[in-house]
Every structure is written in C-alpha cells, then in structure tokens.
C-alpha cells in the first residue's frame, strides 16, 4: 500500500499541477483577439470611419481643450507639449505608467489631472467628465494603430502582479473572477453575448449601450456590478493596477482609440 502511494503521489502531483495550470491559463499571445473582431460589420464600419464614429466629436473637443489656457497658471497643454500629434504620439499606449514621485503607476486620466493641478494650477477634472473623456480620447487617438507598450520593469512589476491578483480573485455575491469569463470562457456566450477576451485596446470608447463615451474604469464597474461586487471608487489604486495588468496582458496589440463597441 505504501509502495503504491509512493508511485501514485508524483503522478498525482503532476495531474494536480496540470489542473492548476489549466485553471490559471492565460491566453497565448498569438491567440489574443480584440473585441473588434467579434463585432458586426456595421459596428466595425462605424469605428473605422471617423465621420461615422460617434467618439470623433469628443476627439475634436479634446483638440480644442489641448490649446485652452486653464487654471491660475493660465497655461494650456500645448504651451508645454506643443503639437500633440507629435509630442503625444505613442504616449497613451504606454499608460498606466510609473510615476516616480507617487511611487506607483498612474493612468492617463490621473496623469492629465497631475498636469492640471501641478502645472496649470487648475482643479482636477472629475472621472467620466466630458472634458476628461475628451482629452483622453484626443490623446488616445495619437496612439491609434500603434502597439500597446506598457512597461514591465522593477518599478511596475509589483503593480502588474497586484492587478493580476485582482483579475484572478473571485468577487461579489456571484463569486466570479474576471478570469472566469475573459480567459476561461472567452468566446462562449453569456446570455446571447459572445464573451470577449477583455483587452482594453480602444479606451476611452463609445459604447452603443451607454450612448456615450466611457473610460475603462467605467467598463470595469459594469462587470463588477454584474458580479454583484462592490465597485472601487473612481481612481482607486485597485483600478489602476487592474488597468495596468490588462494593458500588459494586451501588450503588442493595436490601439484602436477611440473604439466603438456594442
């Protein structure tokens, strides 16, 4: 009996490890798909054509805000950063990015607000406000077509890991994790809707269901609401860590901002 156990135990360990690795399997890089590929031809066309993309208006608003002098410093973004089409090219694709002073990653919304409070001496823009969405859409547009390139280094790794843990953690009354749907069941149908892999390639994006532009944090709140979990406050470290992990998970995928989703 003891001998048999000794023989069985390693095999059992291998089986258990295989089960564990299956349960925590990440989507292979080559098999990642943007939610864009799951959309109808009509919605794809809406995103692809700037004249029909409903987020284009916000991009134009953002362009106007870029040159508007703000705060007691009476500085505009353009006063320091000049032409966004050159200076901001590829910037959004690197966010969230580590901020040395804050000792943690900031998302693009927080980065804009840091400029507002510290450089423009202006009040921060509220999350999901028209102006903050417009500015993030305008900045995001400058990275459209570029690969997502958040940085994984000694500074950011602990936060990517923190985000990964939130992603994998069961939450809410329904006791589901992000991973349960977006890794393990991506492509399956939740009610009638094909589950996307959940790559944040196009934020801020125009969601037909919202009838408006919205941030990734708004989208994350939607999922938490569906899981019957307590959402985090806008701007919470947990959201930024999760954003960073999701962007790292989508590394190399193409920025679509401003995307359109059903």
């Amino acid at each position: 009996m003891e001998k048999r156990l000794r023989l069985v135990a390693p095999a059992l360990a291998i089986v258990l490890a295989a089960i564990a690795s299956l349960a925590f399997a990440e989507i292979p890089l080559s098999q990642r798909r943007s939610g864009y590929e799951q959309m109808s031809r009509e919605v794809k066309a809406m995103q692809d054509d700037d004249t029909s993309n409903p987020a284009s208006l916000s991009v134009l608003d953002g362009e106007a805000l870029w040159t508007r002098r703000e705060g007691s410093a009476q500085k505009s973004c353009a006063d320091c950063h000049h032409d966004a089409e050159t200076s901001m090219r590829g910037v959004s694709a690197r966010y969230p990015a580590f901020d040395a002073a804050k000792r943690r990653p900031l998302d693009i919304e927080q980065r804009i607000n840091l400029c507002r409070t510290e450089k423009q001496q202006a009040t921060p823009l509220p999350f999901e406000s028209r102006d903050l969405l417009a500015l993030t859409a305008y900045l995001g547009k400058q990275s459209r077509g570029m690969p997502i390139a958040v940085i994984s280094d000694d500074d950011t790794k602990p936060f990517i890991e923190a985000g990964r843990q939130i992603y994998a953690r069961r939450q809410g009354q329904l006791n589901l994790s992000c991973q349960n749907c977006h890794d393990d069941n991506a492509g399956q149908k939740l009610a009638g809707v094909e589950l996307p892999q959940g790559h944040p390639t196009g934020y801020p994006l125009y969601r037909l269901e919202w009838q408006s532009l919205g941030s990734l944090q708004r989208r994350l709140r939607n999922c938490l609401f569906g899981m019957r979990a307590e959402p985090y406050a806008y701007g919470a470290d947990e959201y930024v860590d999760l954003e960073l992990f999701l962007m790292w998970r989508a590394r190399g995928m193409t920025v679509e901002t401003p995307a359109v989703r059903p």
Binding site: I19, R170, Q171, Q173, L174, N180, R228, A229, E230
Partner: peptide, 21 residues
C-alpha cells in the same frame, strides 16, 4: 472548487459583495 456556478445558498467566504447583496 474551480466551478463558475455561483453559490446560490451561501454567504460565507465571499469577497467584496456589493452592499445591497
């Protein structure tokens, strides 16, 4: 343990349940 079937009659061992639930 890995099931995605929600626990329909359990209140223990859950994380960050929304206040209303």
């Amino acid at each position: 343990p890995e099931t995605i079937m929600p626990p329909y009659y359990r209140v223990d061992g859950l994380t960050r349940v929304a206040p209303g639930f």
